[in-house]
């Protein structure tokens, strides 16, 4: 068994972010090339309003395709999927997406834990789980599930995060997670493209 999975074994990136999410994601997503080799699933805590402003915002700034996740859609590389407002986003074992209106988790819907736990189940060691800036502890349980399933866990370096609470909590729950600042995260994701 090799220590780290080859990039061909990678299947998806799942990212959670809360307070300060837009600025953090603006630092990373626009750098991704159209041919980015993995699907990117993102939960951002937003108010339960039907219009989600994130998709149009990032569509205009990114080379990758940016869209709102649809129920029963199959994930594809080079596409960024945002969870719709007021729905949980889950990944099924066959690589399709599910939405749910189950109760909020950590007072949040969508919840980062729900995404990361289901993605860890679906993709196992093929998952890169990322927890960025935020003022709560959603994502901590999920990131632990990512490492338990053999996936790669990353947190935004709390020292430089807009709000360090969420990456700190995730790091406590998943101590083997790598802490990276946003520049390092961007470089890391781009290195996946080069591999």
């Amino acid at each position: 068994m090799s220590d780290a999975p080859a990039s061909t074994a990678l299947k998806a990136v799942a990212i959670g972010a809360s307070a300060g999410a837009v600025q953090a994601l603006l630092h990373v997503l626009p750098a991704l090339p159209a041919a980015f080799p993995l699907p990117v699933l993102i939960v951002v805590h937003v108010p339960p309003d039907r219009a989600n402003a994130l998709v149009p915002l990032f569509q205009s700034k990114c080379d990758v395709i940016v869209k709102e996740a649809e129920d029963k859609e199959r994930v594809a590389p080079g596409v960024v999927y945002f969870a719709p407002s007021d729905y949980h986003l889950l990944v099924e074992a066959d690589g399709t997406l599910s939405l749910s209106l189950d109760e909020p988790v950590n007072l949040s819907r969508p919840s980062i834990d729900v995404l990361l736990e289901s993605a860890a189940d679906a993709f196992g060691e093929g998952l890169i789980g990322v927890v960025l800036t935020g003022a709560n502890d959603d994502g901590a349980v999920g990131l632990k599930a990512v490492t338990d399933a053999g996936g790669l866990a990353i947190v935004e370096d709390p020292a430089g995060a807009f709000v360090p609470t969420m990456p700190e909590a995730a790091l406590r729950a998943a101590p083997t997670a790598r802490a990276m600042d946003l520049d390092a995260l961007r470089a890391f994701l781009l290195s996946l493209d080069a591999a």
Partner: peptide
């Protein structure tokens, strides 16, 4: 049923 939700429940 969509299994990921069933599992959570």
């Amino acid at each position: 049923y969509a299994r990921a939700s069933v599992k959570r429940r």
